[in-house]
Design a protein around this nucleic acid. Structure first.
Length: 279
DNA sequence: TCCTCCCTGTTC
DNA sequence: GAACAGGGAGGA
């Protein structure tokens, strides 16, 4: 389940394999994977992949079209979306949803970029950069947690009155956290996932924001967390799952106090926390 | 603000 | 053969 550190890792591993390659063909194997901008599909041949970057949990390809205009391919991997660059002769796999054929700048075939997605929740949108703001999801995304002071993130979390975990998961509050990093940062900050944001002091919300930043940074250093499906664009698993204090550990002893961790459902998500250490 | 649904492979 | 995994849209 790619969250911010996993998408960051995917983008970093994809970059050297696709940047400055030319798209020589496109194959849409599952129509619904292209969520918007189908009309641009025919313009893609000859486009150069000018850049790769991340915003929230989106992986973005900046494309330079042959007519000189710019286009963005925005991919949301959701739970099971994966990129992989295969040799030019590779054939689609069972769950391959979208393929870009790539060549180098001298038109020599360089490979095929597969977007594979078992559960088909992932998508790609083709958009003009100047039209991005018309996409509601994009326009309402909250700040990047690693590029924003913790006090500012705390103020975002404080707005409204809901379970703190629900605020952490809300991409319009801050962008990039998912179930894993929400649970891990709540544990690190000693805050119960069900605590109402209005009842948590600004100081503790700041500690939560700092804990989130720390856990995201550490996970990026370890190339993300691999639960089941996740692989980066080089086919490698991450290692941060070995550092989980609570995620997936319901019933096991708390690493801090030894009491059994409790499982629950909060904000519609499986949640694990320590009733002793998190108040 | 909260709940349901989408989807398929894995686990019990 | 059912429960479960979960981001985000959409509806209550």
């Amino acid at each position: 389940m790619p969250e911010l550190p996993e998408v960051e890792t995917v983008v970093r591993t994809l970059r050297p394999q696709v940047e400055n390659r030319i798209i020589t063909g496109v194959e849409v194997r599952l129509p619904k994977t292209v969520q918007a901008g189908e009309k641009f599909l025919s313009d893609l041949v000859g486009a150069r992949i000018a850049g790769t970057r991340r915003r929230a949990k989106l992986a973005l390809l900046d494309l330079a079209l042959p007519d000189g205009s710019a286009l963005i391919a925005a991919f949301h991997l959701k739970m099971t979306g994966k990129f992989f660059v295969h040799p030019p002769e590779a054939v689609p796999l069972k769950h391959t949803r979208l393929i870009f054929d790539l060549s180098d700048q001298r038109s020599i075939p360089a490979g095929r970029l597969f977007f594979d997605d078992t559960r088909t929740f992932g998508y790609c949108r083709f958009m003009r950069p100047e039209s991005l703001h018309l996409w509601n999801f994009w326009a309402t995304l909250g700040p990047e947690p690693l590029e924003t002071p913790a006090e500012e993130l705390a103020a975002c979390l404080h707005a409204g009155n809901r379970a703190v975990k629900a605020a952490l998961l809300d991409q319009t509050v801050l962008a990039g956290a998912g179930n894993i990093y929400a649970d891990e940062s709540l544990f690190a900050a000693g805050i119960a996932p069900t605590a109402r944001t209005r009842d948590v002091s600004p100081k503790r919300l700041t500690a939560l924001a700092e804990a989130l930043q720390a856990v995201l940074r550490r996970s990026i250093e370890e190339c993300g967390s691999s639960i089941r499906d996740y692989r980066d664009a080089a086919g490698n698993a991450g290692a941060f799952q070995n550092n989980f204090a609570v995620y997936g550990r319901a019933g096991q002893p708390c690493v801090r106090c030894g009491e059994p961790l409790q499982g629950a459902r909060v904000a519609g998500r499986t949640t694990v926390f320590c009733p002793q250490c998190q108040k």
